[in-house]
Computed example of a mutant assay.
Amino acid sequence: MSIQSMNYFKALAEKEKGNAAYKAKKFEEALSHYGKAIELDPNNIIYYTNKAAVYFEQGRYDLCIETCQKAVDVGRENQADYKLIAKPLARIGNAYLKQDDLDNALLFLNKSMSEFRDSTVIKKTHEVQKLIKEKELRAYINPELALEEKQKGNSFFTQGKFPQAIAAYTESLKRNPEDAKVFSNRSACYAKLMEFPLALRDADECIKIDPTFVKGYLRKATCHLAMKETSKAEQAYQKALEFDPKCQEAIDGYRKCAMSESPEDVRNRAMNDPEVQSILGDPAMRMILEQMQKEPAALKEHLQNPAIASKIQKLIESGLIALR
């Protein structure tokens, strides 16, 4: 057997010892075995890749990157399979990611995919792209500039220049995406331009940021009314009244919705209410309601029972029954 062949098998044996040490997390021992494998067979990309894996686990990312680059060079010089070259390139990308160098991470992950499109690397690439986008958005945030754009938007709105106001409010939200009032203001602009789905989207976003912001529910109700979704508008007005019982716009809007609903709409809305369903599903309550139809005077007696009175009041509020 030639010296070259002997070294080949000796290198394989060192690699196996290195793999066993790696699995046992005996990293210095693994490095020693992989180093010996490289000395015996310096043209095998796998040994460099394995050595780089140890450096990665140790958090020695600069050495990991350096060793992976050597692996790529050795692989290209010896016409290694594309998959073998792709692996150290991906590891370089992951090492840069650990160092929060997102641009280089993406660069080398893309290089890896140009050699071989591994599903794990594809997923990691998408994650890094998302991180880069989030980082760019965070870097763009500036509350002071957001306020300036908000004020510009308010000025344009007052002048009736709604597209310009939308542009200013949009820029404001890029600078401060957590300002519920700006979403509310942009919703109003879209409503003025009859873009009700967009106005509704902003109203929902406004409420998501601040669930107690009454104006957000008023914007939402306005959109639903314009889209002829009366029951949804009524629900939005109800939510507004939960947070501000004296809000005149919500009071007037709720009354308008109630008056415009057909009996069928009222019934459908009521029947979708779990509490109403529970009341009507109670055999005792059904008997009481039947008795009230036949003997209206029986109502006074039933109202003496607080539990029954509460259920009757719920049915009155839902519009299912009316007292004369």
Rank of each mutant, 00 (worst) to 15 (best):
M1T: 04
M1E: 11
I3V: 08
I3T: 02
M6V: 07
M6D: 11
K10G: 00
A11V: 03
L12S: 05
A13H: 07
E16I: 05
A21N: 10
K26D: 05
E29T: 07
A30H: 02
S32C: 08
H33L: 02
Y34L: 01
A52R: 07
I65P: 00
I65E: 05
A71C: 05
R76Q: 15
N78Y: 05
Q79C: 00
Q79H: 10
L84I: 04
I85P: 01
I85M: 10
R91I: 06
G93T: 03
L97C: 01
D100F: 09
D100H: 12
D103G: 00
L106C: 00
F108E: 00
F116E: 04
T120C: 00
T120K: 10
H126Y: 05
V128M: 01
V128W: 02
K133Y: 12
K133Q: 13
E136P: 02
L137Y: 01
R138V: 04
R138F: 13
Y140W: 01
I141G: 00
I141T: 10
N142Y: 02
L145W: 08
K150L: 12
N154A: 04
Q164V: 06
Y169I: 09
Y169C: 08
K174C: 11
E178S: 14
S187P: 05
S187V: 03
C189Y: 12
E195W: 11
F196N: 12
R201F: 12
R201S: 14
A203D: 10
D204E: 13
I207L: 08
K208Q: 12
K208M: 11
I209V: 10
I209N: 10
I209F: 06
D210M: 00
P211V: 01
V214F: 06
V214Q: 11
K220T: 06
T222A: 15
C223V: 02
H224A: 04
K228E: 13
K239A: 12
D244W: 04
P245A: 07
E249S: 08
A250Y: 07
D252Y: 11
C257D: 13
A258W: 05
M259E: 15
S260W: 09
E261A: 13
E261W: 09
E264K: 03
R267L: 10
R269T: 09
P274Q: 09
E275M: 06
V276Y: 06
Q277V: 07
P283K: 04
P283L: 03
R286C: 09
I288M: 14
Q293M: 15
Q293R: 15
K294E: 14
P296G: 06
A298G: 02
K300A: 07
E301D: 13
L303K: 13
A307H: 10
S310C: 08
Q313L: 15
L315V: 02
L323S: 04
L323N: 05
